[in-house]
Amino acid sequence: MRFGLYGVSLVSWGLAIWLFMDAQQGHHALKLLPIIDYNRPQGIFGWAVTIAVVCTFVSIGVHNQRVYQLRARRHSSQK
């Protein structure tokens, strides 16, 4: 699950960066705004950034939970 989240977040960040660079080169970067409006992501750029942020936070949480479980298991085996 963790590697799938890493993949989705990497693809989403890559898409968001590519969309931003493409808009920047075409001198219409402000057309990407607003990213979130009316409590919803707006446009492909808004969805890419939202999915990237959510997947990044979830993958960090999954990783931290795994590290905590390994430390707890190691600590309990030392007693």
Rank of each mutant, 00 (worst) to 15 (best):
M1F: 11
M1T: 13
R2W: 10
R2F: 14
R2D: 04
F3T: 12
F3L: 10
F3Y: 12
F3Q: 08
F3W: 15
G4H: 10
G4S: 10
G4M: 11
Y6W: 11
Y6Q: 06
Y6A: 04
G7H: 07
G7A: 10
G7V: 10
V8M: 13
S9Q: 13
S9C: 13
S9R: 09
L10T: 07
V11T: 03
V11G: 02
V11P: 01
V11H: 01
V11S: 03
G14V: 02
L15K: 04
A16D: 00
A16G: 01
A16Q: 01
I17R: 00
I17Y: 02
W18C: 12
L19H: 00
L19G: 00
L19P: 00
F20S: 09
F20C: 12
D22K: 05
D22M: 09
D22H: 07
Q24W: 14
Q24E: 14
Q25M: 13
G26C: 04
G26Q: 05
H27D: 14
H27M: 15
H27K: 15
H27S: 15
H28A: 05
H28Y: 07
H28F: 08
A29I: 14
A29F: 11
L30S: 13
L32W: 03
L33P: 03
L33G: 02
L33Y: 06
I35F: 08
I35D: 02
I36Q: 07
I36W: 11
I36F: 07
I36L: 10
D37P: 05
D37E: 13
D37I: 05
P41G: 06
P41K: 09
Q42E: 11
Q42N: 07
Q42T: 08
G43Y: 00
G43N: 00
I44Q: 13
F45G: 02
G46A: 01
G46T: 00
I51C: 02
I51P: 02
I51H: 02
A52V: 02
A52N: 00
A52L: 04
V54G: 04
V54L: 09
V54P: 05
V54S: 09
C55Y: 05
C55K: 03
F57Q: 08
F57D: 07
S59W: 07
S59E: 06
S59I: 02
G61L: 03
G61Q: 03
N64R: 14
Q65D: 08
Q65F: 11
Q65G: 07
R66H: 14
V67T: 06
Y68L: 13
Y68T: 15
Q69M: 14
Q69F: 15
L70Q: 12
L70E: 14
R71P: 09
R71V: 12
R71N: 11
A72L: 04
R73T: 09
R73M: 10
R74W: 07
R74V: 05
R74M: 08
Q78D: 09
Q78F: 10
Q78K: 15
K79Y: 14
